[in-house]
Each structure stands twice: as structure tokens, then as C-alpha cells.
Amino acid sequence: MIPFFRKIRKTLADDNKPIKYFRYAIGEIILVVIGILIALQINSWNEQRKERIQEKIFLKRFVVELNTNLENILTAISLNKSRIHRAEFLLRTIDKPQLAVDSSSYFMKSIEHASYTNIPLISDNAFEELKSSGNLSLISNEALRAALQKYYSWTSSEGQYNFLQQDIQLNYSQLKQGIFTTSQVIDMGDYYITKNYSAIEAKETFERMLNKPKFLEFIPYVIQNKLMAGNSYDDICNQAKAIKILLKAELDKQNDD
């Protein structure tokens, strides 16, 4: 470039054409600037293209992760409802002892399972990877990004409440000690056991249960805890379903671009 301007300067000095020189020099500068701007634009476009590719990869990972999480949440909701029904059934037997005898196996297993806790496992690997790398901005859709942040904060925000559920289960387990015989306690150790209980076993167990007033008084607290858990699970389930819709819309949009 320097030899070029020296040549121009020499020519102008010879020809005495300064106006032509400045026009030509300005034109050269403009071309250089335009070239730089085009190069910067191409570089920016390439970076944006790479970001969109990365974003699409993460969006697909969120879909897979969300589907698994939803299965866990729906399972937790179903089990939670089942345990509420069992606890409510135990309360009904107090006024109607015949219920325990007529549904002997359900009664026996309700004593064991009514307070069981099943906290849905929310996998957050993709989100944590984005957050820890400081690349949350890769998710270009602001509404989707905000929804993901709220959804994945559920596990930490519910930590203390989940501890309460586990505490309720522990207290319940301690209060029911002495209701089952030794062999029944061992049988109940396998959640998936298919053992059926006779009406006589249920009647004897019911009588032992009545002799545990603190256990009976604790059942309403189990129900209350399960109802609160159910509301929480319903909330996170609805969030997950809403995010699925946002993810599908965003992926469809990117596929069309």
C-alpha cells in the first residue's frame, strides 16, 4: 500500500493533479473500510451461525431431558394420590372397622405405604452445563429462557419442603411400630410383594392399630403433607408441559429458517 501511494504522489507531483489524488485516495480508503466491514459482518454471521447450531443442540437435549423428567413427575403424582387414598382409607376404618376386614390386603398395605415419599427426580444436566459456562444467552427466545430458569430452580427451592416430607415419613414409621407382627414387618420389606392377607390378620392388626392413638392422630398430618406435595408436583408438571410447547415451537421455527 505504501509503494502505491508513493507512486501516486510522484505522479501527482509530476502532473500537478492534487484533486484527482485526493479523490482516488478517498476511494481507496472507502474500499478498504467496506472490505473490513464486510469481513466483520461475515465473521459475525459465522459466529451467529455457530451459536444457533449450539442452541439447537441444547434445545434437543432439553426435549429429551424434559420427557424423562415428565415421566418421573407423573409417576410421583400417581403414587402420591394413591398414598392419599390409603391414608384416607385408614381414617375411615376407625369408624367402620368392617372396611379393614373386607379389604384386608389393601388395609394392611395401606398402613405400610400411606406415608411413603416419592420425590420426582428432575435431571438438569443440560441446563447446568449452560449456566456454569455462562452461555444461557445461547437460548435466544427470552420467554423460553425464563421458563427454563424457573423450571430448573424447582429442585433447589423445594429442598426444604422435600426434607419435611421425609421427616413425616420417618415419624410415621416410628409411630406405627408394634402394629405389625415381626413376620409382617419382614413381608412388608419388599414393596412389590404379592402376598395377600386374610381377614383374621387384618382384624388383629386393626385392633393393634386402635391401641396406637398417636399413630391415628398423625394420619391427618400425612394426608395434609401429601396434598401439599401434590400441589407442588402439579405445578412443576404444568411448567414442564408448557416448556415442551415452547421448545417445539422454537425448534420448528429454526427448522424453517
Rank of each mutant, 00 (worst) to 15 (best):
C237I: 06
E207K: 13
T194G: 05
M188V: 01
I223V: 15
F218A: 10
S198F: 02
Y172W: 10
I236V: 15
E204M: 03
K214G: 07
G189I: 05
A199W: 05
F218L: 10
N211C: 04
M188R: 02
G178A: 03
K212P: 09
R208K: 15
E204S: 04
L170W: 11
Y191Q: 05
Y197Q: 01
M228I: 10
N225T: 13
I200G: 04
Q224L: 14
T194C: 04
N231E: 13
P213C: 13
N211P: 03
S198G: 02
D190N: 06
F215M: 13
I236T: 15
A199Y: 06
M188I: 00
K212T: 12
S198W: 02
N196P: 03
K212W: 08
E201D: 04
L210P: 09
F206I: 09
F218I: 10
M228A: 12
R208P: 05
L170H: 13
A199N: 09
G178L: 02
S198Y: 01
D235A: 13
L227H: 11
F218V: 10
L210W: 09
S183M: 01
Q224I: 12
L216D: 08
A199D: 08
G230M: 08
S183Y: 00
V185S: 00
F180S: 00
I193D: 04
I193R: 07
Y197T: 01
L210K: 15
D235G: 06
L227M: 12
S183H: 02
E204H: 03
K195H: 02
Y192C: 05
D187E: 08
K176A: 04
P213A: 13
A199C: 06
Y192T: 07
D234M: 11
Y192W: 06
I200W: 06
F206S: 11
T205N: 02
R208L: 07
Q174G: 09
T181K: 01
I200V: 09
G178H: 02
E207D: 07
K214Q: 14
M188C: 03
I200F: 08
R208M: 07
D190M: 04
K226L: 14
V222N: 10
P220L: 10
I223S: 09
